[in-house]
């Protein structure tokens, strides 16, 4: 009896350990499944058919920007911070892309790399101010948000410019869900990050800064790196935004500061740092888009969109808080 019971106990122990470690990820995936099922149901009622390749393609293409900036936000949230400048970096990347990218391979590749580098540099500025200036992430990024937005309007005062059609079709192919490849790439980036020494350092920093430092982790470097990664991902998100719109607008990125936080929260990341999965954030980004799709097919006035986004955000955080409280009480 004793050995069997011991094995049994260990098995449930392992399962509940996994659930405890990944409760956010599991919830995010469950929410994604629920959202997809609900979407299919609403779509069936309205169109008497199931959504097909076209819907998949447009959903993936519309979500790519959010997947990228949500992942960027995730790197910072792991450190216990928050990056409010995400929208500003996207604005600037979007504006630069619309003004500079021309219809030659050299221009497309060259400027894409330059814009990604600029995104990373903007993130680096945030990181240095937070880590070396020892300032509050929220205030620093609120200030730099204002600065980056100003720079974006300087680059592109009026909506306009253009994105070469070839560029758009490489990033967001309208004829097939090929952007799923990029989703996979983002997921792989997260896996690589999680297994790198930098990932270990950033997670350690988020869990307990003093303990991390005591164990020889360069916390300043980790924090700067997290913000730099966020800037890089936001820059990429701005490129996808420009490619989707096929033109530039120095203000369309603004809403992504909120959306990226929504994606992170729906993705089950712990806002107190040190816990969460980027895979959950990808799911969270898709849930956000699905909510919009569901509202659209339920004939709900689009004016109410931010009401439902806010409501789902509250429900998600409240549920998350209740579940983690429940788990803590049981263990």
């Amino acid at each position: 009896m004793s050995t069997e019971a011991a094995i049994e106990r260990r098995r449930t122990g392992r399962l509940s350990h996994f659930l405890g470690q990944n409760v956010g990820l599991v919830l995010a995936l469950a929410m994604l499944v629920m959202a997809v099922v609900l979407y299919c149901a609403v779509y069936w009622v309205e169109q008497a058919a199931l959504p097909g390749m076209f819907e998949l393609t447009s959903t993936v293409n519309n979500t790519m920007s959010l997947v990228l900036c949500g992942m960027g936000q995730a790197f910072v949230v792991v450190t216990r911070g928050l990056d409010l400048s995400v929208g500003g970096v996207m604005d600037l990347a979007n504006a630069l892309a619309a003004v500079h990218i021309k219809d030659t391979v050299g221009s497309m590749v060259g400027w894409s790399l330059i814009i990604l580098a600029i995104g990373a540099a903007l993130g680096l500025v945030n990181g240095l101010l937070v880590a070396i200036g020892r300032l509050q992430p929220i205030l620093v990024t609120l200030a730099t948000l204002s600065i980056y937005q100003g720079l974006a309007i300087r680059v592109l005062p009026q909506p306009g410019g253009s994105i070469p059609p070839v560029y758009s079709s490489v990033l967001v192919n309208p004829n097939g869900p090929s952007a799923l490849v990029y989703v996979l790439v983002v997921a792989l980036i997260w896996y690589a990050f999680r297994r790198s020494s930098l990932g270990v350092a950033i997670f350690a920093l988020g869990n307990d800064e003093q303990a991390a430092r005591a164990n020889g982790i360069d916390t300043v470097r980790a924090q700067v790196a997290a913000f730099t990664l966020s800037g890089l991902m936001s820059g990429a998100a701005g490129l996808f935004l420009a490619a989707t719109a096929t033109a530039g607008d120095a203000t369309t990125g603004n809403g992504f500061t909120l959306s990226s936080i929504v994606a992170v929260v729906l993705g089950g990341m712990n806002l107190f740092g040190g816990r969460g999965s980027g895979i959950g954030v990808i799911a969270g980004a898709f849930v956000t888009t699905m909510i919009v799709n569901i509202l659209f097919f339920s004939n709900i006035d689009p004016l109410y969109q931010s009401f439902y986004e806010g409501l789902f955000l509250v429900i998600a955080v409240v549920l998350g808080a209740l579940i983690s409280r429940l788990m803590r009480r049981r263990s």
Binding site: L258, L303, S306, E309, G310, L311, V314
Partner: peptide, 9 residues
């Protein structure tokens, strides 16, 4: 932030 969205909507 969510309340801001709720009030906006």
């Amino acid at each position: 932030l969510a309340m801001n969205g709720i009030m906006e909507g």
